[in-house]
């Protein structure tokens, strides 16, 4: 009994000491930072595939199963952690796309691929009994499919955040974004003034954040090589001009709503759009290892 008592007292005490040391280390680091220059930590936020697909409701977009990354491709990524993380994002985007178009069978298939891949990259804990039950009992309602897709994504983000796996998060976010854009550009032909084309151009802000997020993690070799591929996309978005759009200056009568953005507009022309489409398709097919020419 005495031994158990000592154990009970010692374990928490050791835990506290280890935390204290960590805090002391942090203090020392912080003091060093303070004496040199106050360092500001910046979080560059990147939306989930579901939020990027905010415009999937538009009638201009349709469901095309052939555009999805085939589930059997998962076997191609087994020996490469970067490909596993990147394609985790790709499959998460495919999952969001299937859910947005209420494709129950495909949603179920892609949930299972995401689940299988999660085991390889240390995210298996996310798929607890309750989530597995929900996957096995999916109902073909849009809200239910979107809810499980977004809940899974949120759980993944929280898990990665909690475990400081920011490099995995950065690679996954890039995979998710590339797949979303791959689907959109393959479903959309250029037309002047088209709403979806404008939304593609508006992704400039997201691309800038994604690039900065990757930069913050570039000490990781996988992130660095990914940035080499992503640079073409980033450079193309950097070339997009921002013009003043006098027609675009709404003023709110409601003083409880703050209007932001000014009267600017990001412009993409036809050749820029098709160049972007080419670069996105190339990057996506290279990293998903699809030898397809569309």
């Amino acid at each position: 009994m005495k031994k158990i008592l000592i154990l009970f007292i010692l374990v928490p005490l050791l835990w506290m000491v280890s935390c204290k040391n960590e805090d002391e280390n942090n203090n020392n680091q912080n003091t060093t930072q303070n004496t040199e220059e106050q360092e500001i930590q910046t979080f560059f936020l990147v939306p989930s595939p579901e939020d990027v697909f905010g415009f999937a409701d538009d009638e201009s977009l349709t469901f095309d199963k052939n555009l999805l990354n085939p589930t059997e491709n998962i076997s191609k990524y087994h020996n490469d952690i970067k490909l596993q993380e990147f394609n985790f994002g790709v499959y998460a985007a495919d999952l969001a796309y299937c859910a947005a178009f209420v494709k129950k069978d495909e949603t179920s298939q892609y949930l299972n691929v995401v689940r299988e891949l999660s085991q390889n990259i240390g995210l298996a804990d996310i798929f607890n009994e309750s989530l597995i039950y929900r996957i096995e009992h999916l109902t073909p309602e849009k809200d239910s499919l979107i809810a499980i897709s977004s809940d899974t994504y949120f759980d993944i983000i929280r898990y990665l955040d909690r475990n400081d796996k920011t490099t995995t998060l950065a690679i996954m976010a890039a995979g998710g974004w590339i797949e979303c854009m791959y689907l959109v550009v393959n479903l959309t032909e250029f037309a002047e003034g088209d709403e979806t084309i404008q939304k593609v151009a508006d992704q400039k802000m997201v691309v800038t954040n994604l690039w900065r997020f990757l930069e913050q993690n570039q000490e990781n070799a996988s992130v660095k090589t990914l940035m080499e591929d992503f640079k073409k996309v980033y450079d193309l978005y950097n070339q997009l001009e921002i013009i003043l759009d006098e027609a675009n200056s709404p003023k709110s009568d409601n003083n409880e709503i703050i209007v932001v953005g000014g009267n600017s507009k990001i412009v993409i022309n036809e050749s820029q759009y098709y160049e972007l489409k080419k670069v996105i398709i190339e990057m996506r097919n290279k990293l998903t290892q699809n030898n397809v020419t569309l």
Partner: peptide, 20 residues
């Protein structure tokens, strides 16, 4: 999905860049 929670420390500054 852009919502974010972070561990912060007194005396420090943090920035969140949010694309809208």
């Amino acid at each position: 999905s852009l919502s974010k929670s972070a561990v912060c420390v007194s005396g420090h500054s943090y920035e969140f860049v949010v694309p809208l």
